[in-house]
């Protein structure tokens, strides 16, 4: 069987591309606006988010047969919130500078609708390994959009990539200026809008 035909691959590729949480489902937009001014913060946010969504999918899938139906949302939220706090504490201990830059947005992963959506929509009805892969796929799908937006914003807004200046001095001397708009939230709206348009076009033209 070809790799691309396996169920695991489909579970991964679905959320990563065809059903991309941001571009195709328009979920998790709030954090995508907030943390994409720099690649560094977008990258850490991607890691934190991928960790939380895949682990919460795994744990909830493992528990799916014992969770009482009437309190399942509360249980899901308890799992997600605990994981987010773990991620936040870890960042504060080992990557203090970045955790200061991300400020409240790590904590706000709890309210990211992608995670609860996947827990409720996928993990509750699928075996653990698929749920975990689905979480990874969503993390990658979310993260790839985040990183692309951050790349554009940092390159044109501050003339750097991962904090290293890439726009040469000569260009500035010749009259080039960084785009102030890129540093503001509306720029992320515009970029995400254009990317959603592009991706929908690409996905639909394949069909």
């Amino acid at each position: 069987m070809k790799l691309t035909r396996t169920k695991a691959f489909k579970t991964f590729a679905g959320p990563a591309w065809y059903e991309n949480p941001i571009n195709m489902q328009m979920l998790g937009i709030c954090s995508a606006l907030a943390v994409t001014v720099q690649l560094k913060t977008a990258f850490v946010m991607t890691l934190a988010m991928t960790f939380v969504v895949s682990m919460s999918n795994l744990i909830i899938s493992l528990l799916r047969n014992v969770i009482p139906g009437n309190i399942r949302i509360i249980v899901e939220l308890a799992v997600i919130a605990s994981l987010v706090i773990l991620a936040d504490e870890f960042l504060r201990a080992y990557y203090f500078e970045i955790s200061k830059l991300l400020s409240v947005f790590v904590g706000l992963i709890i309210t990211n609708c992608i995670i609860l959506g996947r827990a409720e929509g996928f993990a509750l009805s699928n075996p653990p390994h698929l749920a975990f892969i689905d979480g990874l796929g969503n993390g990658v799908g979310y993260g790839s959009v985040l990183m692309s937006v951050a790349l554009i914003r940092e390159l044109f807004g501050s003339g750097s990539i991962f904090g290293y200046t890439v726009v040469p001095e000569r260009l500035y001397a010749a009259g080039y200026e960084d785009m102030g708009l890129m540093l503001l939230a509306p720029a992320a709206f515009i970029i995400i809008g254009l990317m959603a348009w592009l991706q929908k076009y690409l996905v639909n033209s394949r069909k």
Partner: peptide
Amino acid sequence: FALGMCLVCGILLTAA
């Protein structure tokens, strides 16, 4: 179940 859940999460977070 809810009580057990609280206990596990609580211990985990306190330890961390």
